[in-house]
């Protein structure tokens, strides 16, 4: 039920931001459209029930702030590599473990790896992520498991069945 309310809020907020008109007709039409979409989604039973595991939602902004700082830091490092007179890179392709249980946390982890310049996730399988790194330093930084632990902290603590990948 909470999911349905959340989905309705997101849809209606998007409608309001994108329309930019505040006449009663458009506001009511938006509410009807959002409610209809939620109803169809409930009927099709395509709700992502794994999302329930991302319980401490208030931690997400802190993680995003940390991720933004990380992105700026690595952008500067990679831009220095790009502008150097001779290209001094040492790419490596390795698999690193990922400790997340749910699919959505795995997706957040893989996307965070790709978003951080210097590392790109190329394959996600059960408990492992294949990563291509521009330099060995980037790979070593990832192997300190700092990001892994932070993403795992986003998950709820109760352990039921582990999420099946794919």
């Amino acid at each position: 039920m909470l999911h349905a309310v959340g989905l309705f809020a997101v849809l209606y907020g998007t409608w309001i931001v994108l329309s930019g008109h505040f006449t009663p007709f458009l506001l009511i039409a938006g509410a009807i459209c959002a409610a209809l979409t939620v109803a169809i989604t409930l009927r099709m039973e395509i709700f992502d029930h794994q999302r329930a595991r991302l319980v401490p939602l208030w931690r997400l902004p802190f993680y995003l702030l940390w991720l933004a700082w990380q992105i700026i830091l690595w952008s500067l490092i990679v831009s220095r590599k790009v502008l150097a007179p001779t290209i001094d890179i040492d790419p490596v392709l390795e698999r690193i473990p990922s400790g997340q249980r749910s699919d959505i946390a795995k997706v957040i982890y893989a996307n965070s790896i790709t978003l951080t310049p210097g590392t790109v996730s190329t394959d996600v399988s059960n408990g492992e992520i294949e990563v291509h790194a521009l330099t060995r330093a980037a790979m070593e930084d990832l192997k300190t498991d700092d990001m892994n632990r932070r993403v795992s902290a986003l998950e709820s603590k109760q352990t039921d069945k582990p999420g099946e990948a794919q």
Binding site: I71, I72, S75, V78, S79, V82, I87, I89, P91, L93, T114, L115, T116, P117, G118, T119, V120, H132, L134
Partner: peptide, 19 residues
Amino acid sequence: IRMPDLFSRMHPAGILDTA
């Protein structure tokens, strides 16, 4: 332009997309 192959080119492209 400068990076030697596809996979290393993805990293500068990532700079554009985020920073």
